[in-house]
Nucleic acid binder design. Structure first.
Lengths: 332, 332
DNA sequence: TTGAAAGCGCTAACAT
DNA sequence: ATGTTAGCGCTTTCAA
């Protein structure tokens, strides 16, 4: 591998000049510039990133810490981040924590010295961002940390769930069951809160939900197979239900499958409405009415925001709240 | 940020000793070892990857170059790679080329100096691997480069397509149409070849296919919407068809959607069989009969193979050919 | 078993 | 406008 020393020798100039040409900094005459570039071409020279990072303290790498690559909303998000990163000359590093090892990921980040980091709905945002801050790594959180004043981007989950409920009511449904996501995840809780408010149970706090056995709520934990089971449980316990609102599309899809097997027609006998608008939702039969989150745009924005914070670490933090859209299809 | 200098000072030892403790190399007395580690803990020291890379020439990073993060088979593959990489202390870097810029990605790789690279069905494998070789970056190709003696991993596409066809025939279908993938992609061509052979047209070379206007083949280019159109075209031109074999699940799903809209019942009026077994395929109605590729395992193997080649660059290359499995569901 | 010193390839400050 | 020099933080000889 050629080094700038080789380039300098071949071009007959000093080390500093080569560096100046490579980085377009300082004054270099057109003539020497040419000489350097042709030496670069001749030797197929590519600067050594490690050496460069060592002195500049920049790696031109962004990290994305996420929980599960196969989660259907992740690819769109990651693509947005990657595209925007590339546009600015950055590379994207992906750390899949598999819902644990978040701290381990942070250690990796510190070693690899990424310039910044996007945390996708981390389990413990505050702690992670704190650790990153100590290591001087700017971070942006997606769908978390709203309370704690971190740099974050989110979606109006509450409003989205409310819109879904309103649409269902508008379709004439007065008994709507809820397939809840995991408790403790903020955006999951927000959707649950909206559901409760919408059915007129503002009086029930999130902590009390589990005591209220008569509420038409079952936990599907955002998962397909749990969605099937939860739908079954819920319909058995609450035969009066005419519509299921699922906290995410995947569990709605599970419910849909269960209903198809039971020969329950959708939406005639039972309507279903989801949340997310993942790709699959427009393909299943019946197609799923849902709330769309603009994942790709969120990714773009997250990357852009992070890049800003990298350049100006103490610029004031702006809140980003994405709006969601009701996508009406066949299921409700 | 603390450096080993700080550690050395605090622990009252020399630089080399700290390094030896950190890397578990050479002899260090238990006592000094303790002293060093407690200094490390006290200062929250994390070694600087760039400095380390600069001297060791290793970055502990693997790159994955792929074309489209949102392609449904990618997440499983990437997860396999990432998991195996993590198990060996490596980090995964993802480069999404969006079907062009492959060469640009290579430049990034050279700069960031990854230790190795997995190319997922690159458009021009030989050229890329050649460039990487010149930069001393070991590479493993997934689904490409079989001809050219590169380190590669593939799936028995030919046999898989044959199995799909045999199953269709076994179900009593004698007029089977083909929704082809893009031409020129090796694994796409292999599936087409198997189709032709299976309908007894060994005489038609791949180059001649387009001249043979009477063949029941339409191009769906692996895409959902093209799958819809291709199904329509094909059924119009060849009403005798009773079964559609799609070169991948996504286009099969497109065909399925078209058929549902036309109130053509599947599999009674028309059977459909796909290739890939992406997640969605088990969720649509009717569920899709298809050929399963073990994406996660392929990812694991690709990473493991790459790691081997990193350790022993001139070890003999082993061919890896994954078997596929017929997954019988409702559509055929 | 340990400390000292050289050097990885580059940038940036300082001369010239 | 250009060459020289001093590190960046670490590993790795080489002595001791």
């Amino acid at each position: 591998m050629a080094t700038i020393k080789d380039i300098a020798k071949l071009a007959g100039v000093g080390l500093g000049t080569v560096s100046r040409v490579l980085n377009n900094t300082g004054y270099v005459s057109e003539e020497t510039r040419q000489k350097v570039w042709s030496a670069v071409d001749a030797l197929h020279f590519v600067p050594n990133g490690a050496a460069r990072s060592l002195v500049t303290k920049r790696t031109m790498t962004l990290a994305v810490v996420l929980h599960d690559l196969t989660n259907p909303f992740v690819p769109g998000l990651a693509q947005g981040i990657g595209d925007e990163a590339k546009r600015h000359g950055y590379t994207m590093m992906v750390l899949d924590t598999d819902w644990h090892n978040e701290l381990h990921a942070i250690t990796t980040l510190r070693q690899q010295a990424v310039d910044g980091c996007i945390l996708v709905s981390p389990a413990n945002a505050t702690e992670l961002v704190d650790k990153l801050q100590k290591a001087n790594i700017p971070a942006v959180v997606v769908d978390r940390g709203e309370e704690s004043g971190l740099a974050h981007i989110t979606v109006d989950h509450y409003k989205g769930a409310l819109e879904a409920m309103n649409w269902a009511k508008q379709q004439g449904h007065s008994h709507i069951g809820f397939l809840a996501g995991p408790r403790g995840l903020r955006f999951s809780d927000l959707r649950l809160r909206a559901y409760l408010d919408s059915i007129g149970r503002q009086d029930v706090s999130l902590g009390e939900v589990d005591q209220q056995k008569n509420l038409p709520i079952a936990y599907a934990d955002f998962r397909f197979d749990q969605g099937r089971l939860a739908a079954e449980t819920l319909l058995y316990a609450h035969p009066e239900i005419t519509c299921l609102f699922a906290a995410n599309d995947l569990s709605a899809l599970g419910a849909l499958q269960y209903l198809a097997q039971q020969k329950i027609t959708v939406p005639d006998q039972l309507a279903v409405i989801g949340f997310d608008d993942i790709f699959i939702s427009s393909l299943v039969h019946p197609t799923l009415t849902t709330i769309r989150q603009p994942f790709y745009e969120i990714g773009i924005t997250a990357a852009r925001y992070l890049l800003e914070r990298i350049q100006q670490p103490d610029s004031p933090m702006k809140p980003y709240m994405f709006d969601v859209t009701l996508v009406v299809r066949e299921s409700c």
